[in-house]
């Protein structure tokens, strides 16, 4: 059996941290193990090696937005899943651009947080409805070009359909729906500032056949992704 994914919760409200812990405990497969809970980031900064595979990060700690701390966490080898009450698309986009693997709003936590943590641990994308919303609302000039099919899959998922229903609506398989959504997410990983977590997401997406290197060329050369790939197998990642 595979080792459970280790996770740290950074959350300044103990009752929310307790709730997240209970979602992790109630996962039938016990696929995630909670190793650390803290109210701020100082504990994570102090250690030289990442103390958990994934950090569940509340974006607002003691009244301050901590999106700017994400690049530091990512550089230290953590995979970040943002968990926040802020569903403003601009904040979601900034979170992803700074290198977070996924964004989960507090309303979505029960349904998606454990799934998002598992996906992040494997460097696979997980797109929540609030994240799909931010991608659909994205008006920035540097946004990636999504195909008609990718947009439609994102739109129906945002609207609240299950992925199986999205598939029936679009006359494609549920698996293809996941492919479209993952590909849209991978295109985002290829834009904006560089981060090792984005490279890892892209490399895995290429490995999984979700996206072809040619489809991300305008924003980032494949050579760069390929050059970063060996580090995936290095210890500590």
């Amino acid at each position: 059996m595979e080792q459970p994914v280790t996770v740290a919760i950074i959350e300044d409200h103990p009752v929310v941290a307790e709730g997240v812990a209970s979602w992790i405990r109630s996962d039938p497969g016990q696929r995630v193990r909670l190793v650390q809970t803290a109210g701020d980031l100082t504990g994570l900064r102090a250690v030289s090696r990442p103390s958990a595979d994934v950090v569940i990060l509340d974006l607002e700690l003691s009244g301050e937005l901590v999106t700017a701390q994400i690049p530091g966490l990512v550089a230290a080898g953590y995979r970040v899943v943002a968990f926040s009450g802020h569903s403003d698309p601009a904040i979601v986009m900034e979170t992803l651009d700074n290198g977070a693997h996924a964004y989960v709003s507090k309303e979505e936590g029960r349904d998606y947080l454990v799934k998002a943590v598992l996906a992040a641990a494997a460097d696979r994308p997980y797109v929540t409805r609030s994240q799909a919303r931010a991608m659909l609302a994205d008006q920035r000039p540097a946004r990636p070009a999504l195909s008609e099919q990718e947009r439609q899959a994102l739109l129906l998922w945002f609207q609240g359909m299950s992925k199986a229903s999205v598939g029936r609506r679009m006359s494609i398989s549920e698996n293809t729906v996941r492919q479209y959504i993952s590909r849209a997410r991978a295109k985002y990983a290829a834009t904006g500032r560089t981060a090792p977590s984005k490279d890892a997401l892209l490399a895995r997406a290429i490995e999984d056949g979700v996206i072809k290197p040619g489809e991300i060329v305008p924003y980032k050369s494949f050579a760069r992704v390929a050059a970063d790939r060996p580090s995936l197998d290095a210890p500590g990642r």
Binding site: L156, Q159, G160, M161, S162, A164, S165, R168, R169
Partner: peptide, 11 residues
């Protein structure tokens, strides 16, 4: 509209 397992989707 589309009906799936008791859930209605309409646009």
């Amino acid at each position: 509209q589309q009906q799936d397992d008791g859930m209605l989707w309409a646009e």
